[in-house]
Amino acid sequence: MTAAEETLSEMDAPRSRTSIVMRWLLRRANLVLGAVLVGLIVIVAIFAPMIATAQPDAQDLMNTLSAPSAIHWFGTDNFGRDIFSRVVYGARISLLEVVISVGISCLVGVPLGLIAGTLGKRADQIIMWIMDILFAFPGIILAILLVSVLGASLFNMMLAIAIFSIPVYARLSRNVSLGLKEMEYVEAATALGASIWRVMFDHILRNSLGPIIVQSTLTAGTVVLAAASLSFLGLGAQPPTPEWGAMMSDGRNFLGVNVYLSLFPGLAVTVMVLGFNILGDGLRDLLDPRS
């Protein structure tokens, strides 16, 4: 059978639903891998009490700084706390950071960008000037400035990260709305008497959702890294919260004695960020093939 005949016979053969799904998934390996990694973290966060082998704050002062063993899979820290359980509970805090920071920045940035892009003129100039100012700051430096004013706490850190992420959403939704407002269906809605707000939120926003979802996934990775960095510096989650960055900060004092204090929380951060980055790339290929 020649190659052409093989292809023809393949085309003739009725494909099962499973094989169609498998082919679709195989073509989008990065999307699947990203979703698996992020899904894994979400499952760990939801079922933390069932997965953890001990309470995250339970101390065993007779068994401090121990290496990984059958009882303590990732070893114990300087207070004898089980590192595995703390890493598991840390997934909850990291996901909370993602939800709060991405949620606030999206809820503020997207409407600002829509208003700038749709209304144009003076509103556009003023909003984008403010966004350019925020964008000029390196994210961590703006967050440090804000935390130094607001005080170091988990919530203030999430707020600071949200503020430096706002311009990303404002710029994105402005650019998308600039393109969409020239579309015929938007012009038709305006001609039929729809108000500018209805056009903005009912027509333009609905059609900007794809790029916003992709951006949120990529921003989630940035949020996890920024939160870990700020907590590592002592400007975010405070002890004894099992936050991954704060755990690594504790671990730096025990390098050479027990590297596992820093090793496992850092691996967890990397897996989570990697997951969001790969998922974001995959979603972009899926939702916005032109890019």
Partner: peptide, 23 residues
């Protein structure tokens, strides 16, 4: 490249310190 863009630089620093400087 994707791993390099995803890793926390201070964690990388700690691991490198532990291996090349401490050990």
């Amino acid at each position: 490249a994707i791993a390099g863009a995803s890793v926390a630089n201070f964690w990388l620093a700690l691991m490198a310190m532990n291996y090349f400087a401490v050990e």
